[in-house]
Design a protein around this nucleic acid. Structure first.
Lengths: 206, 206
DNA sequence: CTTTTATTGTGCGATTCGGTATAAAATAAA
DNA sequence: TTTATTTTATACCGAATCGCACAATAAAAG
């Protein structure tokens, strides 16, 4: 495995930056998906020969699972930065969707990659139980995060209404990733996200 | 290509039923996705040797595009049968989601396949422009169908409210396919669908 | 029967697949 | 310097990949 700290270790030193390589692996899977990404693709993209990839990260499935984790960390980081702590539900949802849109569109590169988890892992799920299980985790966690957000921003709304609103908020996110990957025009995407944020916030006001 | 009618044609007769083979091709892609399905997989599943597949349906991408079309025809057929012509918006949406759930779960086989288009083509989209374009078509058409449905069942609701509701209805469908493929429990899926139908119909009542 | 047309079956062909064995290279520890 | 440890580089494995020649086969048309 890998040494965490900056201690030099014992044998021949690595000539690659593990974090940069993980980033590249993530981006390769993100664009091509699991099945269509070969180890040669990863090798070429990272500059590492295949045995080095194996030694550092395990087999292809392990690399993909790690890429999913790295993707989630990236998403959570961006969201934590960009969601206002105190705002109306509509403002908060809009902030979430705009931040996710920036990621899904891979700005400023404008690559229209969608979501590594919802648009890519989903296709690999039936043949790869571990990927399916990780995907399930993400769906559940996303639901829970929206529920917590609405619990905080709309505490007076009835419990079941908040539950329904949180699920619609998650569904909107799933749809957003899909629409980006389908190639929807950026202006249309923004309007879609804003209308959804508005509608869901209206639901909470009953 | 193929002769449509029952005219016997001229050369050696085919020993396969084209519709049954197309059905099998569709189901294979549906489960495994585009990239992970090999021509050998299709050959074994259909019983046709590879040259016969090529002669009848073209290359792998052409087969997948055809499978997308066949899938859509299947979905539209089921929906046309099972959506009540006159119903409340909530009833209609529930009927749509329950019918789609039956397809996504591949009942009565209980395979949890999700949506061939939204859960499978989406992963292949960036590397295959034709698939991406077909996917985009489907997203657009689905939006339009929900809009028409709500135009018919809630004609007195404001135009922009209907638009927003239709988009949320489509997003719910996208999410439903994803959740099925992630392995969500059937009872949870039903509740999710029913809550969404109820929430969206409430939106229309403003 | 002979010719024409369409499909099937065998097999190849060049490439790519995921994964690994093995040796060379580069460093730290003894 | 010697030894231990780790990474890199080369080469290879058998299997699978998509796609296609080519001949055998089966029917209709002449």
């Amino acid at each position: 495995m890998s040494k965490a700290g900056q201690t030099r270790g014992r044998g021949r030193p690595r000539k690659f930056d593990e974090r940069a390589v993980r980033q590249t692996i993530m981006e390769t899977f993100w664009q091509k998906g699991y099945a269509a990404t070969s180890l040669d693709d990863l090798s070429k993209a990272t500059g590492l020969v295949r045995p080095s990839l194996y030694a550092a990260f395990g087999n292809k499935e392990a690399m993909f699972l790690r890429a999913m984790d790295d993707f989630v960390i990236r998403v959570q980081g961006d969201l934590a930065q960009q969601i206002p702590r105190d705002a109306t539900p509509e403002e908060a949802l809009r902030a979430v969707y705009m931040a996710m849109l920036a990621i899904y569109r891979d700005e400023p590169l404008e690559q229209a990659r969608g979501c590594l988890v919802f648009s890519t892992a989903v296709a690999a799920a039936p043949l790869h139980p571990e990927i399916r299980s990780r995907l399930m985790q993400r769906v559940t966690q996303t639901d829970a995060q929206f529920r917590r957000l609405l619990n905080h921003l709309a505490p007076d709304t009835a419990e079941d209404t908040r539950q329904a609103a949180a699920e619609l908020a998650a569904a909107t996110l799933h749809s957003l990733g899909l629409r980006v990957r389908a190639g929807t025009d950026p202006a249309d995407l923004s309007r879609f996200a804003q209308r959804a944020a508005r509608s869901i916030s209206l639901l909470l006001q009953r």
